[in-house]
């Protein structure tokens, strides 16, 4: 399965999700909020999953959250990461505002990671078009 030319997977950017990725490039984490019931949700959807209304907007959130759980991925499902980049530390972050988001944990050794660790977003430029939101321990 080794492919010397393989790239790390990049997110396809759609009409719906473009504001999220624009925000990341500008150093802001943005998620959708309903203007009727004021609730946030993630991943993006075309209406508020609670009240089903289309009247929503992207709002910048704190970028703060906690580690709901985390794993170290050893299996090289994606050849875009070189063998010496494994294991990949993947976390499911619960944002302070409520929704969950998958990400990578950075700037922390694996032995110090634990569930409920307080983290904050930190942006990593992958390409000119895509900046990824990673998380690190809250300072």
């Amino acid at each position: 399965m080794t492919d010397a030319t393989a790239q790390k997977p990049l997110p396809p950017i759609t009409r719906l999700t473009k504001p999220f990725w624009d925000g990341c490039r500008e150093g802001e984490l943005r998620i959708q909020f309903c203007n009727i019931c004021d609730r946030p949700w993630f991943p993006p959807a075309d209406n508020c999953p609670r009240c089903l209304m289309d009247d929503w907007e992207w709002r910048t959130v704190s970028g703060h959250g906690t580690v709901w759980s985390w794993i170290q991925m050893h299996q090289r499902y994606f050849p875009g990461w070189e063998p010496d980049e494994y294991p990949i530390t993947i976390a499911l972050i619960q944002l302070e505002e409520g929704p969950y988001i998958y990400s990578n944990l950075v700037n922390i050794p694996a032995e110090e990671i634990r569930c409920d660790l307080a983290v904050e977003v930190t942006f990593h430029k992958a390409t000119d078009a895509v900046t990824l939101p990673f998380f690190q321990p809250r300072r």
């Binding site: 990049l10 997110p11 396809p12 759980s69 794993i71 991925m73 499902y77 994606f78 990578n104």
Partner: peptide
């Protein structure tokens, strides 16, 4: 593809492990 794979997140085993 948009919100999991870019972080290396994939596979039912990984969610179960979380």
């Amino acid at each position: 593809a948009m919100f999991e794979a870019p972080f290396g997140m994939t596979s039912p085993g990984a969610v179960t492990s979380l």
